[in-house]
Simulated assay, not measured.
Amino acid sequence: MTRTSEAVTAGIMVIGDEILSGRTKDRNIGYIAEYLTAIGIDVSEVRVVPDIEEEIVAALNALRARYTYVFTTGGIGPTHDDITADAVAKAFGVTIDIDPRARALLAAHVGEANLNEARLRMARIPAGAELVANPVSKAPGFWIGNVIVMAGVPTIMQAMLDDVAPKLRTGKVMLSQTLPANAREGDVGGPLALIAKAHPGVTIGSYPFIEESGRPNTNLVVRSRDPDHLAAAVADVRRMIEEVAAARAAGA
């Protein structure tokens, strides 16, 4: 893993009609975003696209031109609608064929006699791509340009992400601290905006939720890559929370 002082960004592209129909609930976006954030890569955009080649190509070309990396999930299995590899090859303008390295991995896993047409689809890799290891079921993902193509099955995707992570260029890790406001979001929105304005190097988010008791509350999340900036903003947020609580108590 190579650390850089510059921001490193990523887009995530989830491919599959089953996600868009709601038949399959995505379990990968949150995992990838949390994983990348922890190592210093900012996830800036997520797209979900259908199993339509031109839609995949268009979305991929847009994302790869915009971000340092693009991570895709889904569409590299053995069935007729697994068209991600073909779409990626088309986006990069390269050929695609059965890769001897991928074929050997599958043959060792299932046996030469069981390498039917469906399984061989999983050995089709765009020209010039590097393989991404799959220790779970051996059918590899691949990495071409700044695009990392992974399986949609969460356990396999997670193993593939572990394989590529040490090879990624990363930036300075985003630090964060969460403070419960013990108040409704509307009670802290005004003063929170003033604090955010006073700390331009910091991002502050407010996330309302309902406690188990049924009482509304708000989590305030302060983020910065600079620990001193983070500490200064957190101090102001703490002070604001105390002032809101005191004002509420005085009016009770």
Rank of each mutant, 00 (worst) to 15 (best):
T170H: 08
R184Q: 02
T79K: 04
R103M: 09
R248H: 14
G30N: 13
P166R: 05
S44G: 14
I156K: 00
H80L: 10
G145M: 09
Y207K: 11
D226E: 09
L131P: 00
I56R: 12
G189K: 14
D86G: 14
T178I: 05
V188D: 01
V14M: 13
R238Y: 07
L220I: 10
P166Y: 06
S21I: 11
M174W: 11
L230R: 05
G22T: 09
T72G: 01
G128S: 04
L105Q: 03
D99S: 00
L106I: 03
A246P: 09
L105C: 03
G141D: 06
T170W: 08
G186K: 03
A65W: 12
V57L: 12
A91R: 06
T218G: 05
N219R: 14
M150R: 13
K197Y: 10
G16P: 10
R27D: 10
M13I: 07
V8H: 07
D163F: 04
L168K: 01
R66Y: 05
I12F: 07
A91I: 01
A139Q: 13
L168I: 02
R101I: 09
G141E: 04
R3A: 12
V57G: 11
G251V: 12
L106N: 00
A59F: 11
M240T: 01
G11F: 00
P78S: 07
M174V: 06
K172T: 15
R3N: 13
A113D: 05
K25S: 11
P78H: 09
F142S: 02
A102N: 01
P191S: 05
I96P: 03
V202R: 03
F92H: 03
G152C: 03
I98V: 15
L192D: 00
R119D: 04
G11W: 01
S213K: 14
N146A: 11
T72A: 00
G214T: 11
G145D: 14
L105I: 01
D42T: 08
R239Y: 05
W143A: 02
D236N: 03
D86Q: 15
R47V: 08
I29Q: 12
